[in-house]
Amino acid sequence: MVTISLNLQLPHKGLHLLHLDFSLGFLIQRGLHSRNKKAMEFIAKGWNALQEIDRVIDYTEPTDARLHPYYRTAKESFELAMEVDNSNTHARYWLGRMHMKYQFPGACKPIGAALLVEAADMGDPDAQYELGCRLRVENEEVQSDQQAFYYLEKAVDQLHPGASYLLGAVYLTGDCVKRDIPSALWCFQKAAEKGHAGAAVAYGSLLLKGPCRLDGCRPSLEGIMDGTAINSCYVRKGAEVPEEWTKSKRGSKSNKLMKKRVKSVESPVEIAKNMFEKAVEAGCDLGLRWLERLEDEKKLQAAGAD
């Protein structure tokens, strides 16, 4: 405020208006940062309380009175975070999730659903994923599949790993949408890159099946040689093609160039192996089984060659 009063005393009108705008903008940004920081502190406090509840809830009743102090701390913390910064989507998400998941005094599922919808519409990927999961339920009175698909796609646009994995499963099975193997592979790949073990296993296992088994079409020999078949089968429409798949210019019929292209494209088996290794690093036993299966296949091929 002192800065503003000093600027108002400057003789040059344009200069003092410029300084006034700058000072107000700085103060507004500073205030937003301060509110956001305080809100995140409240959210962290509430999250810690929920973590403590999750740690012991399997060994007691969900309505156990000993959990009430933690419920109260979490609820009040998230509410305070919303009071401090009403635009904070994380506070809405956690408070909404709390109303939907836990049986605490005052829990209300409609309130939780409304908070999740607000957070999702404001662009929070966790809320979008949570809504997508909860809307995908069998309910004869409510047709919610398309709405669930809408929120899942919104979360996938922000590369949410859980949403990418679930949407990949939807595309793979053709549940409520047209079956789309390339899109399923793209979703699994993005989720695997974010550390999702299940998506890594799904992506690797689908790669091992190959394009012929996945979509029922047989790519041309030229398409296999120059990589176009791999691109069309393994990359979602609109996705960026890896550089190593497009190093050479397509369309040439030179056998020498075609051989170079084959060498530049990483084998689907190698890609799958890398995915299974990522899954094992994340603690997934299924990834280890797939690695063992690959080793067995490799030994059988070596024995057959001998």
Rank of each mutant, 00 (worst) to 15 (best):
S23F: 07
T173P: 00
H99N: 14
W47P: 00
F22W: 06
V84E: 15
L221C: 10
Y59T: 14
N7Y: 13
V235Y: 11
E270N: 14
D126Q: 07
G25K: 14
S144M: 13
R218E: 15
A302Q: 13
E41C: 11
Q9N: 10
A279L: 09
G210H: 08
G162V: 08
G251L: 07
K109N: 05
C133G: 09
C233E: 10
L15Q: 15
G251W: 05
A74N: 03
A302K: 09
K190W: 01
T3M: 08
P182D: 08
D175R: 15
Y165T: 07
M275F: 02
H19R: 14
L115V: 04
S5P: 00
K249H: 05
G14W: 00
D21K: 15
T73N: 12
S77P: 00
G227P: 03
K278E: 09
A202K: 15
M275A: 09
D296E: 12
A148K: 03
I57H: 10
D121N: 14
W245A: 05
K101G: 01
N255L: 11
S87N: 13
R72A: 07
S5F: 06
I230L: 14
H33A: 14
Y129N: 14
Q51C: 12
T60V: 15
G123M: 08
F26N: 13
G283V: 02
D85N: 15
E295I: 07
K249L: 11
A114W: 08
K190Q: 11
V177E: 04
E292P: 00
K45V: 03
E240H: 02
E76Y: 01
A127K: 08
A302P: 02
V235G: 00
P219T: 14
E270C: 08
F104M: 11
L172P: 00
R97W: 15
H90R: 13
H160F: 07
G14H: 07
R35W: 04
R97V: 03
L131E: 01
R35Q: 07
A192D: 01
V117H: 05
P105A: 06
Q158R: 10
Q128L: 02
L159C: 08
R134I: 05
Q29D: 12
Q189L: 06
T73G: 02
K178L: 14
N86A: 12
L152A: 07
K37V: 02
K75G: 01
V156G: 01
K298G: 03
L206M: 11
D175F: 10
E297Y: 11
F149W: 14
F276Q: 01
A302L: 09
A229C: 08
W290Q: 06
F78L: 13
P110Y: 15
L159W: 06
